[in-house]
Design a protein around this nucleic acid. Structure first.
Length: 276
DNA sequence: TCCCAGTTTCCTGATT
DNA sequence: GAATCAGGAAACTGGG
C-alpha cells in the first residue's frame, strides 16, 4: 500500500513535471531523479516483504506495477501530452469488465481531467476489479475518496449509463458534473462552503475546526445562497435552520447549545482536515 | 403508481 | 419585541 501511494505521488509529480517549460526542466531534474529513486526503493522494499511473514496480506499489493511503468510509457502517456479519454485503454472496455489496471487508469484520468486531489484518494480501496468498483455504493466512494468520492461515483455512474460518450465534450462534462454535485444535500452545501473560503465570504466560520464546530455568521446570506442553489427565492434562515435541525436525528449534526452554532456529527464526512 | 428520503412550509411555544 | 431555537405536522419533490 505504501509503495502504491508513493508510486502514485511520484506519478503525479512526474506527470506535472512533464508539463513544465524547457527552461524550467533543469530545475526539476533532481526531483525527477528523486521520484525514480523512490520508485526503485519501493520495488526493493516490496520484494523483501513479500518473502517475509510480516505482512500476510501482501498479495493484496503484489499485482501493483510501477506508476511510471504503468502510465509514463509511450503507449499510455505519450510524452505527458494532455490526456484525453481516447488515449486510455480503459475506455475500450465496459466498467464492469475493467481490470485493476483499468481502474487505476480511470482514477488517474479523473484526477487529471477534473483536477481532483490524489491525496484525497485512499488507493487501497481502489485496488479492485471493475466489477467490484461497480458494486461500490456512493457511501463507499465517499469513504474511500472523501469529497473526490462524490465526483468519482458520479463519473462512474455516468459512464455506466451513457457510455464513453459522456466524455465527448469535456466542457459540457465538467458543467454536468458541477450541476450534479450542486444538487447535494444541505449539510454538504454547508460543509463545502466552510471548506471553500473563496465562496464563503464570511458567511460561515469555524469555531473549533478539530471538533467540527462552526458558526453561521450571516444567516440571511446563507439562506439566500441556499435558495439560489435550490432555485427557491423564498428560502429563509428559519426554514434552512429547520432543515439543519432534522440532521440531529440522523447524526449528521449535533446540538450545540449556542445560537447559530452547529457541530458536525459522527455521520458527517469530508469536513475533517486530516481526511481531506 | 407507489414509496421513501430529504427537504420546505407553517406553526406554536420557549429562549436569548 | 425581534431573532433564533426546538420540534410537530403536512406538503412537496425527485429518484428508485
Amino acid at each position: 500500500m505504501i509503495r502504491f501511494k508513493i508510486n502514485v505521488y511520484c506519478g503525479v509529480v512526474l506527470q506535472k513535471i512533464g508539463n513544465v517549460g524547457e527552461s524550467e526542466k533543469q530545475h526539476v531534474a533532481p526531483l525527477i531523479r528523486g521520484c525514480r529513486y523512490l520508485e526503485q526503493l519501493c520495488r526493493v522494499m516490496l520484494d523483501s516483504v513479500t518473502h517475509s511473514t510480516f505482512l500476510p496480506n501482501t498479495s493484496f499489493c503484489d499485482p501493483l506495477m510501477s506508476w511510471t511503468d504503468l502510465f509514463s510509457n509511450e503507449e499510455y502517456y505519450p510524452a505527458f501530452e494532455h490526456q484525453t479519454a481516447c488515449d486510455s485503454y480503459w475506455t475500450s472496455v465496459h466498467p464492469e469488465y475493467w481490470t485493476k489496471r483499468h481502474v487505476w487508469e480511470w482514477l488517474q484520468f479523473c484526477c487529471d481531467q477534473y483536477k481532483l486531489d490524489a491525496n484525497c484518494i485512499s488507493f487501497c480501496h481502489f485496488n479492485i476489479s471493475g466489477l467490484q468498483l461497480c458494486g461500490m455504493t456512493q457511501e463507499e466512494f465517499m469513504e474511500a475518496a472523501g469529497v473526490c468520492g462524490e465526483y468519482l461515483y458520479f463519473i462512474l455512474q455516468s459512464i455506466r449509463s451513457q457510455g464513453y460518450s459522456f466524455f465527448n465534450d469535456p466542457d459540457e462534462t465538467k458543467a454536468t458534473l458541477k450541476d450534479c454535485l450542486q444538487s447535494s444535500h444541505l449539510w454538504e452545501f454547508v460543509r463545502d462552503l466552510l471548506l471553500s473560503p473563496e465562496e464563503n465570504c464570511g458567511i460561515l466560520e469555524w469555531e473549533d475546526r478539530e471538533q467540527g464546530i462552526f458558526r453561521v455568521v450571516k444567516s440571511e446570506a446563507l439562506a439566500k445562497m441556499w435558495g439560489q442553489r435550490k432555485k427557491n427565492d423564498r428560502m429563509t434562515y428559519e426554514k434552512l435552520s429547520r432543515a439543519l435541525r432534522y440532521y440531529y436525528k440522523t447524526g449528521i449534526l449535533e446540538r450545540v447549545d449556542r445560537r447559530l452554532v452547529y457541530k458536525f456529527g459522527k455521520n458527517a464526512h469530508g469536513w475533517q482536515e486530516d481526511k481531506l
